[in-house]
Computed example of a mutant assay.
Amino acid sequence: MHVPTQTVWRWLSEVPDPEIPVLSLTDLGVIRDVRWDEGMLVVTVTPTYTGCPATAVINLDIETKLRSNGIENLRLEQRISPAWTTAWLSPEGREKLRKYGIAPPVEGTANTGRISRLSSKKALVVACPRCGSDKTEKISQFGSTPCKAAYRCRSCLEPFDYFKCH
């Protein structure tokens, strides 16, 4: 079965991330490429970080979705370079995170290969996803998963996760 890659992208946009199910794999930006190669559908996936425990589940979910739509000849390729970055989150994905109660990465702080972000002395201002206040504080560098940090809003007093920049 040979379907247009646009159709495959649409199918993949229906596959939820196993750790943050409000996001699809395409919202997250881990699906890097979809192409046909001599009758074989090749899907390129970049994990959010090397050793991410969700990678095996993500690959299985991709394969399950595509096979349920009649794709028989399928190969998943893992691409770790360039490394995934939160800059690859779609605008829709960022909004879905916010509505879900997770603060999306602060714009302009994703790892794009520049070290200026690492050497900056300016404190990161993370807006509360619930009330929008910028009066927040980091409680812990580690949140509910390794890719999130725990924050608290000093305005509405609610705790929330912040999707850390990578």
Rank of each mutant, 00 (worst) to 15 (best):
M1E: 01
V3E: 03
T5I: 08
T5W: 12
Q6I: 11
V8S: 06
W9T: 15
W9F: 06
W9V: 13
R10H: 05
R10D: 03
W11D: 08
L12F: 14
D17M: 00
P18G: 01
E19C: 07
L23N: 05
G29L: 01
R32D: 13
D33R: 08
R35N: 08
R35M: 07
E38M: 04
L41E: 03
L41A: 04
L41G: 07
V42K: 06
V43N: 03
V43E: 00
T48V: 14
C52F: 09
A54N: 11
A54L: 12
A54Y: 15
T55P: 14
T55I: 12
V57K: 08
N59R: 14
D61A: 04
I62V: 09
I62L: 02
L66F: 11
N69K: 10
G70C: 02
G70I: 05
E72T: 11
E72A: 05
N73Y: 02
N73F: 02
L74Q: 03
L76Y: 01
E77N: 06
Q78I: 15
R79P: 06
R79G: 08
I80F: 09
S81G: 03
A83H: 03
A83E: 01
W84H: 07
T85I: 00
T86R: 03
L89P: 03
S90F: 10
S90C: 08
R98S: 05
G101A: 08
G101M: 13
I102A: 09
A103Q: 15
A103D: 14
P104E: 13
G113Q: 00
G113C: 04
S116L: 00
L118R: 12
S119I: 15
S120F: 01
S120D: 02
K121M: 12
L124S: 02
V125H: 13
A127S: 14
A127W: 15
C128S: 10
C128Y: 11
P129N: 07
C131A: 10
G132L: 06
T136M: 06
E137V: 08
F142C: 04
T145W: 06
C147P: 01
K148V: 14
A149E: 00
A150P: 02
R152V: 14
R152S: 11
C153I: 03
C156D: 12
L157Y: 12
C165G: 13
C165F: 14
